[in-house]
Amino acid sequence: MSVPGNNIIIIPDRFRDPYIFENVLSLQSRIFSEKAVLDLSRIAFMEPYSMLSFLLMGRDYMRSNGEKLKLINVPVHIQQYLTRMDFFESGVFNMPEVLKDNMMFKRNASSSRLLEITMIPNKERQGVDVISSVIALFRKRASIILKYWMNDSVTDYFVTVISELCQNIFEHSLDTGYMAMQTYRSGNENIARLVISDSGIGILKSFSSRDDLEFTGGAELIEMALTTPISSKREFGYGLCQVNSIVEKLKGVVFIRSGESSLTALYDRKDQNSKYIFHRNGLVQFNGTQISISLSA
């Protein structure tokens, strides 16, 4: 029988995209029940969706166990990256081996291909202020973040997307959330990824009062919320629909995970006459809603 707090779980190198991050999520119940220490020595790369989901996992751990999730053997480059993204500002992780300041990344203009992790409050007034600040910062950095996709309208498109998705946190999730954005290279591709995540009530529970909606599973409900102007609070909800049509115009990818379901819309494949929307139900339960919007070039 394992002693809580002494078990070390070696976390696999599965932080490269939202799909393989499921592997890490499948360890959550063990991490929580065993109060395990996480060994991150195998991790070679971490993209923004996995990073924010991992942050939510740490926060949920602290909420359920009352203590910080302990991380050990964090590779130097991962620690540098996470510090650069303000990952540790949330204060939910305990990391005994901290790098010295002189080993951290400098914050200069050339390293501004990102928006650091920002907490989106669940109160309307504060939420609006934070969204306004995030968008002001995004406008300053957009020409670098979206360098490979730049045209007259792409910045304005993303202002709409950030605004709509961040509002959903204080409008529907009943919890605080996080957002981050980054352009990074994966193989031969440049990827710009915007991630907005919370660990609130999730889409299924948010629509629980809408008896009139007919759907077969969580993923089908996510698709309905993405493609039709339904709302859990009002007569209509335009936000997600608007995000969907913008991502379609930009030929990007939408990934939404909520509870035990996910949906992927590959608008970069839509013109190829192949299937481009994929549903998954029966995933490991992970609280809240996590959304990734990606462009690749």
Partner: peptide
């Protein structure tokens, strides 16, 4: 009206009109 605002307004009006 900026181009993106036109798109957003048109989208809201279309949704409103379709569902209301």
């Amino acid at each position: 009206i900026s181009p993106i605002s036109e798109i957003n307004i048109d989208s809201v009006f279309n949704s409103y009109s379709n569902y209301k």
